[in-house]
Design a protein around this nucleic acid. Structure first.
Lengths: 260, 260
DNA sequence: AAATATTCATATATCAGATATTTTAATGTT
DNA sequence: AACATTAAAATATCTGATATATGAATATTT
């Protein structure tokens, strides 16, 4: 009925104003805001309050701050990583069961595999070949990281050309990997994943949508079974060392043991 | 090759430490952190830097800050709204086409409708009856808001009992409504939506999964067509007045004109 | 002339400490 | 018992000084 009459935090007010300016199109990625001093004067607040607002906007991924001359506060596009991390934070507390991941994946990924079978270009196929080859090498060396696996599914999503679907698939994989495990993979599992991937790519080569869909479906289900066997027993839950931890330079995908 | 040797911001360092403590389980929702003064001493930084860190954590939805005695910084679960808003920010810059939303919805919602037909309880059916009745009243009064529509789809998602699916459906609807429009609805459209909803609920009552799925599918497709007709012509894009703007007390669902 | 080093201007980053405000609980008053 | 007052603890905000980072202009060297 009535609006809260609470005097909000100054920094919140500033965040709101700037965010609205972005959403209204008055501020666009690349735009540079006036300097802290000037902003503080414009908003009629102290530098400290203004900086708190900037920190919030930074956390939301809406601005980026550079130091030095010609530095300042720049509007930027919120990137996939920021959104994905936020979703990860949410999922962390929800701590969904494996089957919730699987259910959602099953709704999306088999269909995307079917699409990919039809629409994949030579370039895409070359990518998948290279991906399989590298995976094979990693299997031989006993060093199976989930990066290649991640890229495999990501690429399939990409062929859909649907950014929402890419986001969902990407986020799911990220969450599964970082949330549910850090399991020492047994190599039998890795090989089974590799085999699945091979069969899927094979269907791509033959442009056989039906088979691609079915193989992806089987793949997801078999991964589900493995994960359930691993996790749900005692649910080790999580071990956060690097994954969500570090900055851009070591992205989550880099150095976490593999899954799927 | 080499890791960035850049000395990060102090506040970032603090955010990282606290976030990691949360993810590691050392800090749990409801936990209260020491006071600003004490924290500043612990981290060996000034109060200003510490507060910037707290603002970031607050923006991420990981903490909540209360003033006054027995106030302080409290760890909290990241809620759906925070994650959804972050996704919205991402989607805003991506600005996906209607068909991208539709494609993803088609993968999920018809299946969920089928599930709901099978699993909906008397309580659920009562909810849908009430929802339809209220919608009908709003139609009569000419005041069609998207809140009821939103709740309709949300409830179906809820029956899936899958938090990831609920998140996706909820976020999609939120994004569609806030991003794509603020169209003056023509009442023919509202009525068509209402009819679809009625047919879907009817299938629920009969526990007819097949029909529920098909009706939801038709519903989404017809909404897609309407939206494309409305939007893609000149793409009014957005008008941000309240939707993503205000605080908890006026949630996005409240006062934006309806869609679908 | 080109490469390198230095200086300078301008931002942000950080600190220290004072003051204001909010909120709860304890205390007093009627 | 109900209500008002006060005290204490916490965040909120402001001010102004200092540190640091960065790019560009300038000077120096080769």
């Amino acid at each position: 009925m009535f609006k809260s009459a609470k005097t909000h935090r100054l920094s919140h007010n500033i965040v709101k104003q700037i965010r609205n300016a972005i959403l209204a199109g008055d501020l666009k990625p690349g735009d540079r805001l006036p300097s802290e001093k000037e902003l503080a004067i414009s908003f009629n607040v102290s530098k400290a309050s203004l900086r708190e607002a900037i920190r919030s906007l930074e956390a939301l991924g809406l601005v980026e701050v550079l130091q030095g001359v010609s530095g300042g506060v720049f509007i930027r596009e919120v990137d996939l990583e920021t959104a994905r991390n936020s979703l990860f934070n949410y999922i962390f507390f929800q701590n969904p069961a494996i089957h919730e991941f699987t259910q959602l994946r099953l709704l999306i990924e088999p269909q995307m595999a079917a699409l990919a079978a039809i629409h994949s270009t030579d370039e895409d196929l070359a990518f998948f070949n290279e991906n399989l080859e590298q995976t094979s090498r990693e299997l031989d060396s006993g060093e199976f990281y989930y990066k290649l696996d991640s890229e495999f599914h990501h690429r399939i999503a990409t062929i859909s050309n649907n950014r929402l679907i890419i986001f969902v698939i990407d986020s799911l994989k990220n969450a599964i990997v970082n949330l549910k495990l850090q399991l020492e993979l047994d190599s039998r599992f890795s090989i089974s994943v590799f085999d699945s991937h091979q069969r899927i790519v094979d269907a791509f080569r033959k442009k056989d949508a039906e088979t691609a869909l079915e193989e992806m479906r089987n793949h997801i289900i078999s991964v589900d079974k493995e994960l359930v066997a691993y996790c749900d027993a005692d649910s080790p839950f999580i071990s956060v060392s690097d994954p969500v931890d570090d900055e851009k330079e070591s992205s989550p995908e880099k150095d976490t043991a593999a899954v799927r």
